[in-house]
Design a protein around this nucleic acid. Structure first.
Lengths: 266, 266
DNA sequence: CTGATAAGTGTATTCAATACACAGTTCTAG
DNA sequence: CTAGAACTGTGTATTGAATACACTTATCAG
């Protein structure tokens, strides 16, 4: 009724952007030498090589041997470019369905794949916007995780909740991890020394009275990476600290589906 | 041995920054009319009123009636200012120890307090850096959560892991939530319409064959906010969707401490 | 063929962060 | 008590980024 009809939310717009559902490509004018794909790929390469801060429109265009403004023929804004980069960054394959139907193993595998992906492209986890996934790759990962969760006996809504929870944890973990690594690289110290430095700083301000539990944590040197991390628990694979959290979440799901027993489970 | 001795990592530096452990304030020169606290508070007010994008050095200084450069007498960089803002934003009180020692209730309470805090200042959750907490307020919240977790029977290291996991989930949840709300505000639609728009976009690209589970999700209209959310489970309090995830995590912890039974639990 | 349309260019604007030199204050040492 | 020294806030300039706008030229539709 008013002048503006349906301004379309970011999320909705992003889906169209990511699937290329925009204006039909009318052909006239010169043959495009650049393309959206090429631009995104170049930006990705810069991010991979030098981190996301290095990605500027000028930098990407230089990389391609074009002017800055030429990029704007292919993406509407830097923001759009970043959105495209994020989905493209997830181009790897999520784990396929398990033959044995072991949802716990399936989810652990999924988590580890996500971790691998994030560790390979740490810049992805610092790009906060991009609410729910909307691109082909993002949706493929979502599908993969969701499948296992639904396989556990959760209903779809519950599965979505747990997927959000799990991915959040994975993201933040990798963020912390790479912050640490960056700090190490920047200062020229080893990661262990960075942790120790941080602990030392904390010890200067953390009193037993005000922060008893944190004091305990510092006392037990929880922050300094332990040799073998957690106990190995069940399976004999190498376990890092994050796995502890993941397993607790899986325990939680397991106990829930068993108790509320809508479905029998395997 | 080299020229640079110990460049000090970000985390360590932040702790000193946040506790004001820097250079001893030698008194000479004019009486400072501004102060770090005042600057941080002004920045906070801008962020509260107009979001974090509105926070620029120029804007904050204008707010105070000073020049941009004057701020740099009190903070070394905008980055430092943001770090200070984050800790100050958490000035509220986390829940104190429970008299009844009910760690589950304690943790739920903690989570809800965190949520309340984040919802009150949504900009905090978009500021990604700032690895582990280092400031007085951040540590107070950490202590509070950690206390309950240790009370459940986890060891400190495990508790730290679970705290990270929980806070990650809370952060991301609020981020999604406020992204949605922002999108609604921006487009002038209601949040419900935004969700529906997003779903509609997804439906255009999600095929049964490639994304069966997501298709199911769309079919069951999981994204559209349901009237009463999840079933109310046990306690009769109002439950939102996030609570489901939180409870699964608590279940996971409970099942773990019961099984590995180092401590008897209540 | 011819003109509308699109691709890439060049230039300019805007906005933010922050370096640097300066002016005016106020405390300390002699 | 006084000469600096040290420090506060100011003014100005630089730099880097995003992006608007006008322009040139290549193509293709009619």
């Amino acid at each position: 009724m008013t002048t503006e009809d349906a301004p379309k939310s970011r999320m909705a717009r992003d889906v169209e952007l990511l699937w290329g559902l925009e204006s039909p490509p009318r052909r006239r004018g010169p043959k495009p030498r650049l393309s959206r794909e090429v631009v995104v790929r170049a930006a990705l390469d810069v991010a991979d090589a030098e981190g996301i801060e290095a990605v500027s429109m000028q930098r990407v265009s230089k990389e391609l041997g074009y002017t800055t403004m030429s990029l704007y023929r292919h993406v509407d804004s830097k923001e759009d470019l970043l959105v495209l980069m994020i989905d493209t960054a997830m181009e790897g394959d999520p784990p396929g369905p398990r033959a044995d139907g072991d949802w716990r193993a399936g989810l652990e595998e999924w988590c580890h794949s996500v971790l691998e992906l994030y560790r390979h492209r740490p810049w992805v986890v610092r790009l906060s916007f991009s609410g729910p996934p909307g691109g082909p790759n993002g949706l493929r990962w979502m599908e993969s995780g969701l499948r296992e969760l639904v396989g556990s006996g959760l209903d779809v809504g519950e599965a979505v909740q747990m997927l959000l929870l799990l991915s959040s944890a994975l993201r933040e973990s990798v963020r912390l991890e790479t912050d640490m690594a960056d700090a190490a690289r920047t200062t020229g110290n080893t990661p262990v020394e960075v942790e120790r430095d941080y602990s030392r700083s904390l010890r200067r301000v953390v009193t037993e009275e005000e922060f008893p539990t944190i004091a305990l944590m510092l006392h037990e040197q929880v922050l300094e990476p332990r040799p073998t991390a957690q106990a190995t628990e069940g399976t004999g694979e190498p376990t890092h600290e994050l796995d502890f959290g993941i397993r607790r979440v899986l325990d939680g799901i397991e106990s829930y589906v068993r108790t509320s027993g809508t479905i029998g489970g395997a």
